[in-house]
């Protein structure tokens, strides 16, 4: 009897101070990252040659989104110490003191398990295994290992952010294809110039937190050179969906134009190295890189969705 009473007291103690609201838990899931994951996973589903049942597709996307959110919660659990010292992250629920660190860990682990099992049951176990690998890669390989040890952290860690279209394609087909791997490659090569453009501006923040981002370790000049190199690599890679035949010529023209603009902006970052204009150029590239990826994936997804709609209409006609 006394043991039960004691455990009751423990429960009362552990919950007593918590004023965390559902929105704090929602913030742990990094909703903006989740929306990007859903968007790229949808594109992966749409390029699949076989059609997925809309209900199964919706449930699969939900599982993928929750899995991505779970890895965000695990990231915020592990990075609570460095989130406290960075301006960009100090208002997150854990460093701001609104949510206990261990609650973030429990929440992240629970959602990781639930999302993987749900995707396995709803879609297939290849997609579930890929989702589990994505969560593991982001939470363990990137967050716990690479982020604090190497300036190539976001290069290798970018694989986690690049996997959702492969997971989406696998959910629709139970397979991995060259097309889904091309989408993976585009996001993978896009990640370094995107994050390094921001890191150039936030170098002081990263320095204070002790994160070895490329501008802090190798210097801003080397970072500018590498941004340009990745942009030059990304521009032709963006044409691959058209060259491989799963996007139209219209996509190819759009991708070519956007790729050229990306390289020009990267070149501007490479040339303008001092003063407030240098920061503006870097932020301009950062902002454009988001637009670049969004438009590329929206074009592919839009084309495929339109084709599916036409096929459905002609079937019923």
């Amino acid at each position: 009897m006394s043991m039960i009473d004691e455990s009751d007291d423990l429960v009362a103690t552990s919950f007593a101070g918590s004023t965390a609201t559902p929105s704090d838990y929602l913030a742990l899931l990094k909703p903006r990252v989740m929306s990007l994951v859903v968007f790229t996973a949808v594109t992966g589903m749409l390029i699949a040659p076989s059609r997925i049942d809309p209900v199964i597709g919706f449930a699969s996307l939900l599982a993928i989104a929750v899995g991505a959110g779970a890895s965000g919660a695990l990231n915020m659990w592990y990075d609570a110490d460095i989130d406290t010292v960075m301006r960009r992250t100090k208002n997150r629920p854990v460093p701001a003191g609104r949510l206990d660190k261990n609650d973030a860990l429990g929440f992240g682990l629970f959602l990781s398990g639930m999302s993987v099992v749900t995707l396995g049951v709803v879609a297939n176990w290849l997609a579930a295994a890929l989702l589990a690998f994505t969560i593991f890669f982001y939470a363990v390989v990137y967050t716990m290992w690479l982020k604090r040890t190497t300036p190539q952290n976001i290069v290798i860690g970018g694989a986690a952010g690049a996997l959702p279209p492969v997971v989406g394609y696998a959910a629709a087909t139970g397979d991995i294809s060259a097309a889904s791997l091309v989408l993976f490659a585009i996001i993978f090569v896009w990640t370094p110039p995107h994050f390094w453009a921001l890191a150039l501006v936030k170098a002081e923040d990263y320095h204070r937190a002790g994160i070895p981002m490329l501008p802090n370790v190798a210097g801003p000049d080397r970072c500018r050179r590498d941004i340009l190199l990745y942009a030059v690599l990304l521009a032709p890679l963006g044409l691959a969906p058209w060259l491989l035949g799963f996007a139209s010529l219209g996509y190819g023209v759009l991708s070519g134009a956007l790729g050229l603009l990306l390289v020009l902006l990267a070149l501007r970052v490479y040339r303008v190295r001092t003063g407030p204009r240098a920061d503006r150029c870097a932020l301009g590239l950062f902002g454009f890189s988001i637009l670049y990826l969004t438009l590329l994936f929206a074009a592919i997804a839009g084309e495929r969705a339109f084709a599916i709609l036409l096929a459905a209409l002609s079937f019923h006609a």
Partner: peptide, 11 residues
């Protein structure tokens, strides 16, 4: 704390 617990329970 009571209010936030209630919100969490509803969620």
């Amino acid at each position: 704390a009571l209010k936030s617990r209630r919100q969490r329970n509803i969620a």
